Simulated assay, not measured.
Amino acid sequence: MFALGAVSLVTDISSEMVTAVLPLYLTLFLGLSPLQFGLLDGLSFGVTALVRLAGGNLADRWQRRKLIAGIGYGLSALCKPALPAAGGSVAALSAVIAVDRTGKGLRTAPRDALISLSVPAGKLGQAFGVHRAMDTVGALLGPLVAFAVLTGTGGAYDAVFVVSFCVAALGVLLLVMYVRDRRTPLSAPRPATSPRAALGLLRDAAFRRVCVVAAVLGLVTVGDAFVYLLLQRRGGIDAVYFPLLSIGTAAVYLLLAVPVGRLADRLGRVPVFLAGHAALIVAYLVLLGPGWLVAVLILHGTFYAATDGVLMAVAGPMLPEHLRTSGLALLQTGQATARLLSSVLFGAVWTAWGSTQGLAVMAAGLAACVPGAWFVMRRYL
């Protein structure tokens, strides 16, 4: 768990360096409209949705979760220097982002499966909290490194992408050297694994309800990049400071990930998961009103601390070990597909009627869905 946390920490420094500057790089430097940016942002979720199931099934079938995760980390690392090479071509940028998201889609479920197989079921919330806390240290440092590189190079985005690649390569090396795989012993019978067997997990009512709730809530969640663009535009923040906005979210996430994970283990993972979405509704309302930057970032970080690892802790014990990766990939696929539609919808509404109307639609949708999610999942408290 700690070795995987170290890999995620280093990898997140790399990925958050790019994530912190990419919205402004695309909308300000390359001149993309909110709708075009929404399509690219949605593409990042859509591609992960397509490959998560395949990666999860291969990891379970071959019992090589570390290998599949390593391929995913490697693909994402190779894409970093390709971003500036794409120039202003939307098609080329789409291709690079698609490959990068393919890497993320391959690695996420095997990584989470390795964590869930490394600790007792009663401590899953804490385990995922520790991992997400280490991951978030990287998310905290990444924007700072990007800001330092931009400041030191006079705003050279290319330099950010090159440094990001070097850091990502270090993450792959740590995975290869220090992370142990988790396999079924050769002497033990291995139940059949296949895409059909993975989809068959949806016959379990509890797991099916979790998947549906995660997808519906994802559909009415505004992407992080849009949240930061709204904060930057409403607050009149200079473009050079844009990478620092995500630090607020990451810092709160870092502080709360472990205690919220422990709280979820003691009081119930479903109530904590839904409380995180309630915090997100409040963040949208604040952004619609005075738009207090600190309040929005605190609430945004609280949302992630209460939902990201907690959802995996909810679903993990519902899944058999031999299909653990496939099941988590199925859950994440539904979320990613919903986030794709969410990004395109929000970008379209922003382009047609304005950002305020778009945010109001998403806030209203989330406020309507959270009580419904409670009704659906309350039996699993």
Score class of each variant (00 low, 15 high):
F2T: 12
L4T: 02
L4R: 00
A6L: 15
A6D: 13
T19F: 08
L22P: 01
Y25I: 00
L30I: 02
L30Q: 01
L35E: 04
G38E: 01
L39G: 05
L40E: 00
L53E: 08
N57H: 10
W62I: 06
A69V: 14
G70F: 13
I71K: 04
G72E: 12
S76M: 14
C79L: 04
C79F: 06
S89F: 06
L93S: 00
K104D: 15
K104I: 12
G105M: 13
L106N: 10
R111Y: 00
R111P: 07
H131Q: 07
T136M: 11
G138M: 10
L144A: 14
L144K: 12
L144N: 13
L150A: 03
A159L: 05
F161S: 00
S164H: 00
F165P: 00
C166Y: 06
L175G: 13
R183P: 09
R183W: 13
P185V: 03
L186S: 12
A192M: 05
S194G: 07
L199R: 06
A205Y: 09
R208P: 10
V210A: 06
A214W: 06
A214I: 15
V220Y: 15
D224G: 12
R234S: 15
G236H: 05
I237P: 15
S246H: 11
S246Y: 15
I247L: 14
L255N: 02
L256Y: 04
V258G: 11
V260E: 08
G261V: 14
R262K: 14
A264C: 12
L267E: 11
F273G: 15
L274A: 11
L274M: 09
A275K: 12
L280W: 03
L285A: 10
L297S: 12
T302V: 11
A306W: 05
D308E: 02
V310Q: 10
M312W: 04
A315W: 00
P317Q: 00
M318A: 07
H322A: 07
R324E: 05
L328I: 09
L330H: 01
Q332P: 09
G334L: 10
Q335T: 07
T337V: 06
A338W: 04
V349N: 02
T356A: 12
Q357E: 10
P371E: 03
A373S: 14
M377C: 06
Y380V: 13
